[in-house]
Each structure stands twice: as C-alpha cells, then as structure tokens.
Design a protein around this nucleic acid. Structure first.
Length: 884
RNA sequence: GGGGACUUAGCUCAGUUGGUAGAGCACCUGCUUUGCAAGCAGGGGGUCAGGGGUUCGACCCCCCUAGUCUCCA
C-alpha cells in the first residue's frame, strides 16, 4: 500500500469516528522554543496543557515532522529519519482509554475493503505501563489478545510526561513482529528491532509535580479533563506494509535513493558503507524538500542552519560516493515526484524550492574547493616534515573555519597515506559545543511563565476593534502586576492590562505595537507595549500616570492617531516594496521577515546576491509609482484556500486561522495575508526611500527604507550636507561630484610629481655623499648627517640607494636627518658586511639610545629615531668607533 | 545567541616572530612570431576594507565599525 494511501485511510477512518480533520501544521513550529514541529501533538499542545480551550473534542491529523537529534544515525538503522509523518488522533476531555484502544485496533486490523490496513492480528504485540491494569483489561476485551502478547513495562518506556510539572500519564504501545529472521523471540521487551513500534497511545490522566526529569516525580492527582494523544509513525507502517527493509526504501523515499545510485554508478545492497550514504542522501533530500517547501531557507542559525546541514550532508555523501558534480536538480526532481501525491502544493512551490537548493549546492561546492586547497597545503606540509598524521587542530580548523567536513578530510588524508588525530578533533569539537551550550543556558534564564494568562484567555478572546476605530470602550478583565494577577493597580505601577476589547494593535507580523493611552474616570495610563502572550489574548503593558485602575471597571482605549498613521504608512510601504521587489526579482525573492514602525521599514528576503544600484533604484521607482497612482488598499476575510487561489502571498513562519485576512493594494497588484493596520489608499504612504541593502547571512538579504515624513527629513539632511560640501568646494551641488574627482586626480598627480622630484633630488645627492665614504677596519663606512630630508621613508630610500652603489663591498651606510624636529636614523648593511657579523639593527639600537629614543630592524636594514638633535654627531662617532 | 576566519593591483592570491608591499593572469609599449593558455624585453596600476590606539616605525599587535565565509547551540 502506498504511503499516501495509508494517510488517506487514516484521515477517513477518524473522520468517520467524528474527529475533526486538522491539516498538517507547518514544519515551522509556532512554539518559539522549538525549531520545528517535532511530533504530531505539537500543534495541539496549548489544548493539552489547558492554556487555550480546545475548539473541538476530538481531532485527527497527519503531521509533517522534522527531528535532527539523531542525524548521525540516519541511514545506519531502519527507523531514523530526519523527516517523518505522524498520524495522530486526539481527545480533549472527550473519549479516553477504551475508545482509543478500540479505534487503534479497528484501524490496524479491519479489512482493506472496509478502509482498514488489515495487518495480521497474530503479528501485533502490545506494551502497557506496569501498573495500568485497566488498559490490560481493555486490550483483552477489545482485541482478545492473549496475556503473553501484552507486556508490562516501567516508567522509562511506558510513562509519558514533558519532564516538567503538567499533564502526565501511562501509555500503551503497539508493535509489529517482523518475524524470526530479524531477531530473537520474546516480544518488544526482548528485541525492538524485530518487534517494531508502530503506534503509541498516551493516556493523559494525571497532574505531575516537580521532580527530576521523566522518571522520578510526584503525582499530584487526576486531571479534571483527561486527554488522549496518539501517534502512529507513517513511515514505519509503510515500510512494514510494503515489505521492504527500512523506511528509506518506501515509495516516498526509494526513488531518490535509486537516482543517487544511478548517478554514482553504485549498486544498492552491495556495500554497507555506500548503502548508508545512499540512504543519507535519500533521507536528507526529502527533508530539505519539505523544509524549503514550508519556507525555511538555508542560513547560519536556527532553522536555516539545520536545513543547510541537511543539504551539505547530502552533497558530502554524494561526494563520498564519488560524485562531485552538481546533482540536486535530478535528486530533488525525484523527491518531489515521490511526495507530490501526498503534498500537492509541492508542484507550485517546486521551482522556488529547486532554486534555493541549487544555490546552496553551488555555495557549498565553492567552499569545498577552497577547503580542499587549504587541506592540500597542510598535507604537503605534513609530508615534507615526514609526519604520519594530520593534527586534530588542523582538521578542526578545516571544519570550523572553512566548513570542510571531517569525513572528507579523513578520506583525502587516507588517500595521501596520512592518519588523522581524531581524538584531538573530537575534543575540540566538544569544547566548542560546551561553549555554545553554556551561553544558551545563560540566556535561557529569562523564560516567562505564561500560566497567569491562561485563566484570562479561558474567559474568551480579546476583541480587536482597531481596524475601524482608534478609540474603544472596554471592560477591565484582568491586571497583572509583577507576574501575578491583581485586583488593582495604582499610580506609578507598571501593569499588564487585559481588556475585553481594545483598539490597540499588538506587535505581530513585523508591525510594532500601537502607542497611546488608556483613560477612565480620573485615570490615565500610558501604553508602552502591546503583546499577545497567548494566542487570542491581548495585553497592554502600561504605566499608571494618574488615578488607579481596578478589575471590572470601564475604560477607554485611545490610540495616538499620529503614531497609528505612521505605523500604517510604514506597514503598507512594506507591502508595496515587497510587491515591487518580486516584480523586479521574480517570485523567489520572498519575504522572510519584516519590521516596521512609524517612519521606518525593514524587509528581509531570500536572495543570493547583493542588489545593484540600478535594481535598488528600480524597486524604489516602482514603489513610488504605486504610491503616486493612489491605489486602493482593502482588507477582507476569507478562507485560506480561497486566499491561496487568489494568489495571495502567505508568509512562512506565520500561522493563520481558518479565516484569514487578505490585504490588497491596487487589486491583484499586491495581495498578502496580513493582520496589520494599513492606510486606505497608497498615496497616504507619501514616499519610500531605500536607505540600505545588506546581507543577513548567506542567501538572505535585507532592505531598509525611510517612509513618509522621515524620508523627507532624511532628504533634507542630505541636501544640507551637500550644500555645505558645495560651499567648501566653491561650486554648485550639481558640480560637486565632478569637482571632487577632479581634485582627487589633481592631488594624485601632485603627489606623484612630488615623489618624483624628491627621489630625483635624493639621487642627486648620491655622488656627493659617496665621497664621504671612509675606510674603517676591513670595510667601508658612510656615516653622515643629511641636512634636507622630509620623511623617514626618503631617508631610508636614500640609504638603500647608497648601499646599492657599494653592494659588492663590505660596507655600512648610516644616515641621520632631522625630521619634524626629531633626529631620525637609517642604516643599511651590504650582504658581505652582514657576513662579517655586522647587523643594521644593532647599529640603530646603539645610535638611537644615544639620541634618546628607540629603533631597530633586521640585519640588512634598520631605522630609528630619538629626541635630542644635538647628539647626532656623537652618535655617528660612536658608530664609527664600534665598527673600527 | 556564542565561537573561528577572511578583506592586499582589474582578477586569483603570497607577504614567517613590526623595519624597502610582491607573484601569476589581465592591461599598455616594443621585438619576435602569424594559432590552441604563445615567447622575450620594458612599463603603468595599491588610501594593504574604513576608523581609532600602541610604537621611533603598523599590511603585521590591540580596540571599534562594515562587508563576506564558516562551525556550534
């Protein structure tokens, strides 16, 4: 049975059992502490923990997941994949153990023509928590399983909790017996490779307290609402049903593996090491495809870095298989075709996905080239010094600084007959890891407890009136002082205010929060920040200026109209610039983040090269043209599929409800899903002026612009500056540029002429100075004072010129000159004199000490300076004496 | 978020404990020669990313800023 077919059956089965079918959430987790959606239940966590009331009693989903913790195990085992799909059914205070077990058994064992999977009953085993007699009874009753196929296991295997206070409970797992060829008898307790876990049923029934980790804690009591959370690994079931050996050989993955084998000329199944590499490629390509599809772009931190690693590991594995040409085009094509049945949206996204993948492949091939040359240098060096191994710090340097993978270092070193000090490398690697971890620990201390907001959220959603109104009458639902709920806040308090409705916009979608006041009878609060700590709940962080505020009272929210206009201008400008950007660069230039506040906007987007000045001007021009055309800006609510059919741009990492808000500027000219506040017509934006374009890491660029009045005042500032420059140059602003380049050219020419004249002058002095050359001891010495010299460089050049005249003799040239009122000395020694043990550096040291300063140099040339001009003759005499 | 590194001629890059800024390619001139990266001789081209500091003296050491690469969390 095809993987996509198992998925369809799953959803149909639970839909028939009155479950709401919830589409897979994005791989980009809504929870900021998680990089990715790592399990099927992640999107339901707020409902499980009670933070937000569940909108339905029972639900089902097939959730895309990415987990990279065991990335090094990929390809080596049957069941470690970085991308996988988790089939789940969930109950929020609705059904419990009996139904959960009944549904699971029915789905697994009912005949194919009845919508089930028809797994043979005698191959299924079950584990339960050791004290959970209730579950055992249900299993016997529902499935008529003999007791010897139900195994009791302890806390470690069959008890679920998050590791922290909150819901917890026993679980029951279903296993499939692959048969005696795969291991010993004795059930999952004995061999988890023969008996493969396919489904985990979690019965959340207790509230757990503090305590160490996942095994040692106190049970506080029963949960008021018991939940069911189950997860069936889609890939595992698929590989069992498809009669293949592991998850890399299922229909959604195998074609990539085959293509990689074809490209490398390898035959799968002949060599274990090559097989692992082929599986790594197949797994990583699929994960990358899905991640890019959900809007992740390669980067050097967070999610982007995980994706980059997956892509680069694929390139590395291909290279170890003997392929060094670019291959992503072919591999991604296979992966897309294998996945598109289950995820049709991949078809539309594919050209964007491929572009991003190929750009990363090219970038990595470049770093491999430069890394290879560094490695070759070190190998040559090691061979020259007859070393037998490459040191660990060189391998670490290659990995850490040049991004050159250790496996490739090992391979290439081996080809050159060198070993690698792997222990030192691992040690350095661990040091780097603990550094980063220690830092993360420090930063994490600032975590906020959101539970205080859960009770307010349970009373309902905060209504946002700010799209239509700047002011709203509202009732005070709650106050939070120093993290604790409070009845009242007095003058001077900094308080979080929760209202039943508000005209204040909370920070989201890149738009900064509204500023303004909350007013009441003798009451004035200055609103400093507006946030949504929990989905659906708006809090106002405010300072009580006058009077006091209490729960239950009626207040008026008043947004500062000037602030709001500025914010709306900036946000609409962001949409306009985004549309212009895509018009110029094409649809792959997708916004990856934004920030805007009155007068300023910032837009991050995926793109590989810096923008030329012409491109920037073009974007700016299109933006301002759209502003001048006075396009209508409208907002309307519709379903997500409707919005997508309209071609509205959805931004990744944002989560959208069933009903989404689409902002249009000039109809189809710009359509984006957005919850922000906007101007009514594009002309109200006034002006957009791009100030800067820069990189935020490889593959990601940032545009910044001034908006409205800010743009005009920035222009004014520039104009004033240009005027001042023109005045200084005694010309007009229009002619300033020409004047400056003219002046620079002139200056350069003058400097050139000056240097020429000076060197001519210096050379002219040579014959005269040569006459002062004396015989001292066995050699020649020229030690004299120069009257006219302008710089230490000239003094040096002259010294060298003189030495060159006697370069075949045993000779020393010493020149002293006064520069800026200080005595300078320069000494040059011919090679024959150096052979006699004469060192220029020592002569300078001797002289500069007499002159009251310092100096030094090498054997052939040295320079120094001092403070006492009157000592020059003495110093020269001492030099002559020392050489004589 | 934390670390490592890079930025030198139009291009690719050397520059070894701070003391004369270099090579190859490209360019210009001349000679030789008429083809597959031609040869020979000569020549032009540098705010050593920008700014500050230490020093008699900084491409080199220290600090800041910008751009780029890279690893780890």
């Amino acid at each position: 049975m095809k993987t996509a077919e198992i998925k369809r059956r799953w959803l149909a089965f639970f839909e028939s059992k009155d479950h709401v079918v919830v589409p897979s959430a994005s791989l980009i987790s809504e929870d900021p502490t998680l990089l990715f959606t790592v399990a099927g239940m992640v999107p339901f966590i707020p409902y499980m923990s009670g933070l937000i009331p569940a909108p339905y009693g029972r639900a089902t989903s097939v959730q895309k997941c990415v987990r990279t913790l065991d990335i090094d195990e990929v390809g080596k085992t049957t069941r470690h994949g970085t991308f996988f799909q988790m089939n789940g059914n969930f109950s929020f205070g609705d059904y419990f153990k009996r139904e959960a077990i009944e549904y699971a058994w029915e789905f697994l064992t009912s005949p194919v023509d009845k919508g089930g999977l028809e797994l043979p009953k005698d191959k299924l085993w079950v584990t339960v928590f050791k004290d959970d007699d209730e579950s055992i009874a249900i299993w016997q009753d529902v499935a008529s399983l003999p007791l010897d196929r139900i195994q009791r296991r302890g806390m470690k295997d069959n008890y679920w909790s998050t590791g922290q206070p909150g819901p917890a409970g026993p679980c029951s797992e279903i296993y499939y017996d692959r048969g005696p060829a795969y291991g010993i008898e004795g059930g999952p307790e004995a061999d988890e490779d023969r008996y493969i876990e396919i489904w985990n049923l979690v019965f959340m029934q207790y509230e757990r307290g503090l305590g160490g980790g996942k095994e040692d804690f106190e049970i506080l009591g029963e949960l008021p609402k018991k939940n069911i959370d189950t997860g069936m690994g889609l890939e595992r079931v698929a590989f069992l049903m498809q009669g293949v050996e592991n998850l890399y050989e299922i229909d959604q993955v195998r074609p990539v593996l085959d293509k990689a084998a074809e490209l490398s000329g390898k035959t799968y199944g002949q060599n274990e090491q090559d097989d692992v590499r082929l599986r790594v490629v197949a797994d990583h390509i699929r994960s990358s495809l899905m991640l890019i599809g959900d809007g992740v772009t390669p980067g050097n931190d967070g999610r982007g870095y995980v994706l980059r690693r997956l892509l680069r590991r694929s390139v590395r594995a291909m290279r170890l298989l003997g392929v060094s040409e670019p291959v992503f085009g072919k591999l991604f094509q296979e992966s897309k075709e294998a996945m598109v049945d289950a995820y049709p949206e991949l078809e539309n996204e594919y050209s964007r996905i491929l572009k991003i993948a190929i750009a990363e492949e090219e970038a990595f091939l470049r770093t491999l080239v430069s890394g290879t040359s560094v490695l070759e240098n070190h190998i040559a060096e090691a061979k020259n010094s007859r070393a037998i191994e490459l040191s660990g710090d060189i391998c670490f340097l290659l990995h850490d600084t040049y991004g050159f993978p250790i496996d490739l270092t090992l391979e290439i070193a081996e080809e050159n007959g060198l070993k690698v000090n792997r222990d030192d490398f691992d040690q350095l690697m661990n040091e780097q890891k603990s550094r980063a971890k220690a830092d993360a620990k420090m930063k994490k201390a600032g975590g906020v407890d959101l539970s205080v907001f859960a009770e307010f959220r349970a009373q309902g959603l905060s209504e946002f009136t700010g799209y239509e109104f700047l002011q709203s009458e509202a009732k005070v639902i709650g106050l939070v002082l120093d993290g604790a709920s409070s009845r009242e806040a007095k003058q001077g308090d900094l308080v979080d205010v929760i209202l039943d409705r508000t005209s204040f916009y909370a920070e989201s979608g890149g738009q900064s929060p509204d500023a303004g006041e909350i007013l009441g009878d003798g009451l004035v609060l200055e609103v400093l920040d507006v946030q949504k700590p929990v989905k659906g709940l708006i809090t106002h962080r405010a300072l009580v200026r006058q009077g006091s505020i209490s729960v239950g009272s009626t207040v008026m929210t008043r947004v500062d109209p000037t602030w709001r206009l500025g914010a709306a201008q900036a946000h609409s400008a962001t949409h306009v610039v985004h549309a212009a950007l895509r018009q110029v660069l094409g649809p792959s230039a997708l916004q990856s983040g934004s920030y805007n506040k009155p007068g300023y906007m910032r837009l991050d987007f995926s793109w590989n090269n810096s923008l030329s000045a012409a491109t920037k001007s073009e974007i700016e021009e299109i933006s301002n043209l759209a502003i001048r055309q006075d396009l209508a800006v409208s907002a309307q609510f519709m379903s997500l599929p409707e919005a997508k059919a309209w071609g509205a741009v959805a931004l990744f990492g944002e989560t959208y409800d069933e009903s989404v808000r689409v902002i249009q500027i000039g109809g189809a000219w710009s359509r984006e899903l957005c919850g922000g506040t906007h101007v009514a017509r594009s002309s109200q934006i006034g002006l957009v002026s791009i100030t800067n374009e820069s990189s935020v890491g490889s593959g990601s660029r940032r545009l910044e612009a001034n908006v409205g009045l800010e743009a005009i005042s920035a222009f004014n500032k520039d104009r004033l500056m240009l005027q001042e420059i023109a005045e200084q140059l005694k010309t007009t602003p229009a002619n300033s540029l020409e004047k400056v380049s003219q002046m620079l050219a002139e200056l350069k020419e003058k400097q050139r002429l000056l240097a020429q004249a000076e060197s001519k002058q210096l050379l002219a002095m040579v014959p005269e100075l040569m006459e002062k050359m004396q015989e001292v001891g066995k050699g020649k010495l020229l030690a004299t004072r120069i009257s006219e010299i302008s710089s230490p460089e000239s003094l040096r050049d002259l010294t060298i010129a003189l030495r060159d005249r006697v370069q075949n003799d045993n000779a020393v040239v010493v020149l002293c000159g006064v520069i800026n009122g200080k005595p300078n000395i320069s000494v040059a020694v011919t090679s024959r004199a150096q052979d006699q043990g004469i060192k220029a550096g020592e002569i300078v040291k001797l002289a500069s000490a007499i002159l009251g300063g310092g100096g030094g140099g090498k054997a052939d040339l040295a320079q120094g300076a001092g403070t006492d001009v009157s000592k020059i003759e003495l110093a020269l005499a001492e030099i002559a004496k020392s050489l004589g």
